[in-house]
Write a protein that binds this DNA or RNA. Structure first.
Lengths: 346, 346
DNA sequence: TTGTACGCGTTATCAA
DNA sequence: TTGATAACGCGTACAA
């Protein structure tokens, strides 16, 4: 605990004023005469007095903190998410309490615990049950991230439909015929939405989708695993792969290149996120740009200022970013850019 | 705030007992007769009573939380760090408060803020000034991560000297002659230690080191940038590159492959961390294995149980992991493994 | 075993 | 403008 001796009463005594005055000075809440103010400030600085957090919170009925619950996946996506949230929270003077569910069974208890220590809670899709979200919502403000929650809850999500646009691009513009989808819909509402958009594009264009998604996680290493599954199998490999995120796409490209295959000539690959690395690979990674940081900051703002926006979903737009990995002409980064052949190889 | 009506007094009234008894029941601190216990539990469950965090903390003089301060870099290293710390803290019932300094100027103020809300604080190397660490140490327990702090402070670090072993391996076993080092020592004590070990190995073997490190960050994209700097330059490119971490190494490999170069035949690459992806690339990434998760969990344990270990550094061992990217024979993952030529191309 | 009374540190209210 | 007093919710000596 902090300096236990130095509290309001003690400072007040030293300065020869009342505790109330010390409080007023320390938080600048009301007018105090210059003399007293000076006397108090001197004592405060001399002894490094800082108001005790509990006392203040108890009196103000306010924590000054926000909670962030996420599944515990690693990678740039969550890093960006956490940092965006954290930096926005710090902007308004709120501290951030972190809880990664990590697929544990006692997550619910931890969430309730957390709910008692924060003013608002951001919950990433796929981490907490609907029932628990409902329950927590009744005591503090909750915003669901990356998933369009029901109209009763506030949520911020990004448009997954763009995966459909991208899939149509592969099918129609490039003429690929055997597409694969890398990612696991179950337990992840955002991956589910992307998979559904992928299927919908097939249905619209009359193309035949794969029997099911290639089930791997969202880390780069999972992309390498997907490469094993798709390329080392006895079945005919796909001519284009839509990955649930950039990380797996990069892992897949790495796997393909390592096997002596060419991208996109032998196999086209697309991602989702448009993380910095996507523009730096050669060939550049065709992907869907998602405003991850905005997703985080908007969520934090919604939590801090509950007045501005009531419940309902805030949908952030996403865009297709065409680069070389789908077969489109690549804009070389640096002088060594290769010419990517436009059009498919069907 | 939580259900403001439902507090100890109210529950006590409902159950027809005293507040003290409710407290005893809710935390199982003392013996209570079965009947009263039953009555109280009924009311607690029926109305979902949860002890207010502030009241409890104020009375117990204890926060039940740990702080984690880190620079704000993204990538697998910090993800693993955060998660390891968080999972260990949850094990002991502590909540985690996050603060990413993000190279801001007002970090010191935020750190002091944080110090008033946690029982202990883990500070990653390169985030907070010595003076501030000293100051915070006087009020709560502090552990410095990834940097051997002075004997006055507790710290947990991993052995960077192994980079010297790896460098000697490149120079002596493989006979590489023009090594490069990718990473920015300044502001990052752990990168500094690796750079120094790299230099020491050159001195010991009489080899001539590069004029200076290739200054880029620690993200994968920085590896791609390093590839531009090293491979697109007019100067003769290095025949081996020691990267400050695996991420930049992978970015560099990606850049080299994208330029039509072969790894390790045209250029050897090594990393640091041994993240999952390192074993999955082809060729496999030669690197130094660092127990990142242990770094985090040991730190958390040190903070939670200040009794076990007093000040001083806890050094975790690291190991060289030889794979194909340095020129050693690679163990193929899957059937498509390529034969890597052992020995250098000097 | 149970209840009473006080302390934890701060802010808000109200009276001066 | 300032000060006294009452909350805020809980844990815990101490007394019964």
């Amino acid at each position: 605990m902090s300096n236990s001796r130095v509290n309001v009463r003690w400072v007040a005594e030293q300065a020869g004023v009342s505790p109330a005055t010390v409080s007023r000075v320390s938080r600048g809440s009301a007018q105090v005469s210059p003399e007293l103010r000076e006397r108090v400030m001197r004592v405060i600085e001399e002894h490094g007095y800082r108001p005790n957090h509990f006392g203040r919170a108890l009196a103000e009925k306010r924590h000054g903190s926000l909670g962030l619950v996420f599944p515990g996946l690693s990678g740039p996506y969550f890093s960006e998410l956490i940092q965006g949230f954290e930096s926005e929270a710090l902007e308004t003077g709120d501290q951030v309490l972190l809880l990664s569910s990590h697929y544990r069974s006692d997550t619910d208890a931890k969430v309730l615990d957390l709910a008692g220590r924060v003013d608002g809670m951001a919950i990433h899709a796929g981490t907490v049950s609907e029932a628990m979200i409902e329950r927590v919502s009744q005591t503090i403000r909750v915003v669901v991230m990356a998933h369009k929650a029901g109209p009763a809850h506030a949520s911020v999500s990004t448009d997954s439909g763009t995966v459909g646009t991208l899939t149509r691009h592969l099918l129609v513009e490039h003429g690929y015929r055997r597409l694969a989808f890398v990612g696991t819909p179950e337990g992840s509402p955002d991956v589910t939405a992307r998979w559904e958009a992928f299927l919908a594009a097939h249905a619209e264009t009359g193309a035949r989708p794969p029997a099911g998604p290639t089930l791997v996680g969202l880390a780069q290493a999972d992309g390498a695993i997907a490469a094993q599954k798709l390329l080392d199998s006895e079945e005919e490999p796909p001519d284009a792969v839509v990955c649930a995120n950039d990380e797996t796409a990069l892992g897949l490209i790495l796997g393909a290149l390592g096997r002596g295959m060419r991208v996109p000539e032998d196999i086209a690959v697309t991602g989702f996120d448009d993380m910095p690395m996507a523009a730096l690979v050669q060939p550049g990674l065709t992907t869907v740009r998602q405003p991850v940081r905005e997703l985080a900051t908007v969520t934090a703002r919604l939590l801090h200022a509950p007045l501005t926006q009531r419940d309902g979903d805030t949908l952030l737009t996403t865009d297709v970013v065409l680069r070389g990995s789908c077969g489109c002409p690549d804009r070389p980064s640096g002088e060594t850019g290769r010419d990517a052949t436009a059009g498919g190889d069907s």
